[in-house]
Design a protein around this nucleic acid. Structure first.
Length: 263
DNA sequence: GGAGTTGTTTAGGA
DNA sequence: TTCCTAAACAACTC
């Protein structure tokens, strides 16, 4: 599930634990979620540490604790963060559980495509500071976007806007939403797009990212009623603009839906 | 039982 | 070299 707005929403779910100590840590240390990680160190350093601050960028999250501890979480396909009243017994897919006095902070992920990172450092870890500029930052520019589209010119635009190194936070439904709103066919090769297309794409991405943060990112509420989002998963869905029957196909390895008339 | 899934990484090929 | 695609990862739902 988690894309741009959902990630921001889940990050805030743990806010209830801000300023409070982690009393103990429970984790499934053999799971794929922790690949390559020293889970004993994570447990040792987080125990007794206070949750100070968190941030989301694209699909990545980072949680800063005292003890110079930084916990990075990627939710993968099926991950989410939740809290429960203490005491709590971890369930099968609760791979990381941070126990606090009144509540527990839980990372649950059935399919385990998610990932946990852990760093000890005075300042924010390098993997975080070198993330690409977010869609709403001033460094995400039309020029930079166009250069990327050119470089990835032989791939369909749908596949290209799913690339996190240039479009952080864009997932499958957001990609379809962007292309529908910008009126671009998802199979168009990125290198074939006109200057006009580039402008429309850039503007649409900004608008959509802004709106998603105000709805999904704020309180998990749905994006506007007029959006493609509400139609793309329906069998025999119609385009909300022109009522043409929507088409589905696999593009760039992902299920894609579009309006054959508008796009 | 089989197909499909809102994500990322990697191997192999163009 | 650079970039593109398909497969793999794993578990659940329809």
């Amino acid at each position: 599930m988690p894309e741009l707005g959902e990630v921001e929403y889940y990050r805030k779910v743990w806010d209830v634990g801000l300023g409070q100590k982690i009393l103990s840590v429970a984790l499934h240390d053999q799971k794929r979620i922790f690949r390559g990680l020293d889970t004993q160190q994570l447990t040792r350093k987080l125990t007794g540490a206070k949750l100070l601050h968190s941030e989301a960028r694209g699909k990545q999250m980072i949680f800063h604790f005292s003890n110079n501890a930084w916990l990075g979480i990627h939710l993968g396909m099926t991950g989410h963060l939740m809290t429960k009243k203490a005491p709590y017994s971890p369930e099968k897919h609760d791979h990381l559980v941070l126990n606090q006095k009144n509540q527990v902070l839980i990372f649950r992920d059935p399919r385990m495509f998610g990932r946990v990172r852990f760093d000890l450092s005075k300042t924010v870890p390098k993997w975080w500071s070198t993330l690409p500029p977010s869609l709403l930052s001033k460094d995400f520019t039309l020029k930079a976007m166009s250069a990327f589209l050119k470089r990835r010119g032989r791939a369909p635009i749908k596949a290209v806007i799913l690339m996190q190194q240039a479009f952080p936070g864009v997932g499958n439904w957001i990609a379809d939403e962007i292309l529908w709103q910008a009126k671009i066919h998802p199979k168009t090769l990125a290198g074939k797009l006109s200057d006009q297309n580039h402008k429309a794409l850039f503007k649409t991405i900004r608008q959509i990212a802004t709106q998603i943060m105000k709805t999904v990112g704020k309180d998990f509420s749905d994006p506007p009623k007029t959006w493609f989002f509400h139609y793309r998963w329906k069998k025999k869905g119609n385009c909300p603009r022109c009522h043409t029957i929507l088409q589905h196909a696999t593009i760039g390895g992902r299920t894609t839906c579009w309006c054959p008339k508008c796009q």
